[in-house]
């Protein structure tokens, strides 16, 4: 077991390392850099920039080195938590990123919890009431949930919140708390706002998980051991929840591994539409402006989340299914 964990962690480190190399190369492929854009801007502001100044800037950001040296310098810093400088914001990447990553992770976790808490009971109900009217209704809602674009759902909820609930929707906080330090009142205010992005981000996976849950449970209900449980004299509720659902969860747990990064990248549009200070919009902007170190740090962190998510999912699966051995 300990051996297994050590091996997995080593694999994870190697994986992330390779991803970072490939991402670094890819981001460097298109011509030009954020520096060029910055020079452009300085020129427009009137100042004439000499070659000397440009070279100074390049030197400062290490752009004169060959790519592999740039990479080594960056990864060397990254290991110590120094992710380099953002060209466009003229600030250390780490400073820009942490609060936003935190918001993203919190949003995604809530969306994940929301999806599971809704999908499991609804999926179970749907499967145990197959071909009844409620099952059909659930099915229709599911397809809408999968098909509806997130920005549209976000807009609909905004309108709903504004007109029906009369709240100042959008963003994670009301005006007066926007820049306030964290406090009890601000926390409550956040909770009042967070449900909209959570629903929007979670809607697609909720619908999908409901579908998966229903299909799996229908499969499991055909297994002999479900009849065995009934033949013991157990209540139908116990048969369903203890004996069937438990075995129908495995594919859901396996999907957890990929859920976290998907959710995090899935909230880009939502965050833009809802004006939420998460990492999505910043990531998008960094790609547009070729803000190299910012972009690559995002890629790195997302791959870390992916491998960690996978490891957690494997542990959960081993815990849920005794036939799975970790070795």
């Amino acid at each position: 077991m300990v051996n297994y964990i050590i091996r997995r962690v080593l694999y994870m480190i190697v994986t992330v390392f390779f991803i970072s190399i490939i991402a670094f190369i890819l981001i460097n492929l298109p011509p030009g850099s954020a520096l060029d854009a910055q020079i452009q801007r300085l020129r427009q502001q009137g100042g004439d920039i000499s070659m000397q100044q440009i070279n100074d800037l390049k030197e400062r950001y290490g752009l004169n080195d060959p790519v592999y040296v740039q990479y080594l310098k960056w990864i060397g810093g990254a290991i110590h938590g120094d992710f380099g400088q953002s060209f466009t914001y003229n600030a250390p990447v780490g400073e820009l990123i942490w609060s936003r990553i935190a918001v993203s992770v919190i949003l995604s976790l809530f969306a994940l919890i929301f999806a599971w808490v809704v999908a499991i009971p609804v999926g179970v109900y749907s499967a145990t009431h197959r071909y009844t009217v409620p099952d059909y209704i659930v099915t229709v809602i599911q397809f809408v949930g999968i098909a509806i674009p997130e920005f549209l759902l976000a807009l609909l909820l905004l309108v709903f919140a504004a007109t029906v609930l009369h709240m100042d929707a959008g963003g994670l906080n009301s005006q007066q708390f926007q820049n306030a330090p964290w406090s009890w009142a601000k926390l409550m205010d956040t909770i009042k706002h967070i449900w909209i992005p959570v629903i929007v981000i979670g809607a697609g996976s909720t619908a999908w998980l409901t579908r998966v849950m229903r299909a799996n449970l229908l499969d499991v209900l055909n297994y002999q051991y479900v009849q065995t449980a009934r033949a013991k004299g157990l209540k139908e509720n116990v048969v369903i929840w203890k004996h069937a659902v438990r075995n129908a969860l495995h594919p859901l747990i396996m999907s957890l591994g990929t859920a976290l990064p998907t959710l995090i990248s899935g909230e880009v549009i939502v965050s833009i539409v809802l004006n939420i200070p998460s990492d999505g919009p910043l990531f998008l902007a960094s790609l547009q402006t070729k803000d190299m170190y910012l972009a690559i740090t995002f890629v790195l962190l997302q791959s870390v989340l992916l491998v960690v998510g996978n490891l957690l999912a494997d542990f959960l699966l081993a815990w849920a299914d005794p036939r799975v051995r970790l070795e």
């Binding site: 297994y223 002999q224 051991y225 009849q227 065995t228 449980a229 033949a231 004996h243 438990r246 075995n247 849920a320 299914d321 005794p322 036939r323």
Partner: peptide, 15 residues
Amino acid sequence: VGMIFQEPMTSLNPS
């Protein structure tokens, strides 16, 4: 009334 089934492989819950 007790009952046992044909498929011993699937008549016990794996979990």
